[in-house]
Amino acid sequence: MTVRDRGLAVVVAVLWGANFIAIHVGLEHFPPVFLAGLRMLVLAVPAVLLIPRPAVPLRWLIGYGLGFGTLQFLFLFLGMYAGMPAGLASLVLQASGPFTLVLGAVLLRERVRRRQWIGIGVAVAGLATIALLRAQTAALLPVALTLLGALGWAAGNLCNRLAQRDGEAVDPLHLTLWMTVVPPIPLLAASAVVEGPATGWLATAEVFTRDGLPGLVALLYLSVVATVVGSGIWTVLMRRYPAGVVAPHSLLVPVVGMGLAVLLLGERPSLPELVAGVVVVVGVLAASAPGRRGVGVEPPVARV
């Protein structure tokens, strides 16, 4: 990669790492399920109006939207609303990488090398350590919800891969934007049942006041900056270089997320959690690293 493109990859990691700070702020102004749906609705409307639907099988587009756009953010937002620290959430969500490899091996019969299995085992050990540490403080539920979000992301990755495999000249960014058409209906319907039919819309009206301005900025950041700008740059880089060259930069996301959480939110992860976090990153890196001949599962990329 050129120095310029490496810089762009780092910029994307910063944008995605800051995404977790935006979620934290957004949850102070919106109910969690409603925020997950509204974030997608903001993108779904212009996507339908301005971008042609990608020529992919409808089942994979729906599966991508349900896994990546619905389940991932539903459980992530619920986990953070239940007390999952923003920095730790950015780390635990990286479990999507090992989950993708396992699901790909089980459901798609994709080949996983011994080194990747070892990496998965290391990452799982790190995540289990974090879960045990959190369980000692009665905070296991947020970790479990965030892991379910990572599993949803992994399921979405598989549908994304199948959509691009079976589609015709698919633009990955267009596919990502059209994926946002799926989540608003189930998420907003769930919000109406669980959080109340008017609660989210009243919160939306309040973000247009002075006190609610941070919530509006957070919503726009989640929808436009993190998804459109971040994913747009990442898509360009993925087209220029092999996935194994670009994808490891996504491991900077939890580093940025945890760093910003310390600086802006005053979070203080314990030393054992930091050590376990390093173990997770090392495991994910080993699991997603390409082999000498490029054999194996293409690593998933972070788009949050």
Rank of each mutant, 00 (worst) to 15 (best):
A247N: 06
V45I: 15
E28L: 12
R109L: 11
V253H: 05
G215Q: 03
P272A: 09
E195M: 05
G294R: 10
A205E: 14
G79F: 05
G65L: 05
I23N: 03
A144D: 07
A128R: 03
M80V: 09
D211E: 14
G196K: 02
G266E: 09
L71M: 14
R239W: 00
L285T: 02
V3D: 05
F77N: 15
G126C: 10
R113L: 12
P52W: 12
W16Y: 06
V14E: 08
G149P: 05
F20N: 04
V193Y: 06
Y81I: 00
A198E: 14
P98A: 03
V182A: 06
A55T: 14
A155H: 00
L49F: 11
A190L: 15
G277S: 02
M179N: 13
V236P: 00
G67D: 11
L132S: 12
G152F: 08
V256L: 06
A198D: 13
G167H: 06
A47Y: 04
G119H: 08
E273N: 01
R268G: 06
V245G: 02
P299H: 07
A198K: 07
L8Y: 01
E110L: 10
E195I: 06
F20E: 02
G17W: 03
P242A: 10
E298T: 15
G212L: 04
F20T: 01
P142M: 08
L237T: 07
V14S: 04
T129V: 14
G230F: 11
A261K: 09
P184A: 11
T204H: 02
G65H: 05
V3Y: 11
G63M: 06
P290Q: 08
S90A: 15
L140T: 09
L141K: 04
Q94M: 14
V253I: 15
T137I: 13
Q164A: 10
Y81H: 15
L15V: 15
V106T: 08
W178S: 09
V280A: 09
M80L: 10
A169I: 01
G63T: 10
A86S: 13
A155Y: 01
G69M: 08
A95I: 01
L237I: 09
L127T: 09
Q72F: 11
Y64R: 05
I118L: 14
A86K: 05
R114Y: 06
L41Q: 02
L66W: 04
T137Y: 04
A155V: 15
V48W: 14
S288D: 09
L202W: 08
P214S: 03
V225N: 12
E28R: 13
V122T: 12
V282F: 02
G266Q: 06
S270Y: 05
V281L: 15
R134N: 13
E195V: 05
V253L: 10
L93T: 10
V280G: 04
V297P: 03
T2N: 12
S96Q: 15
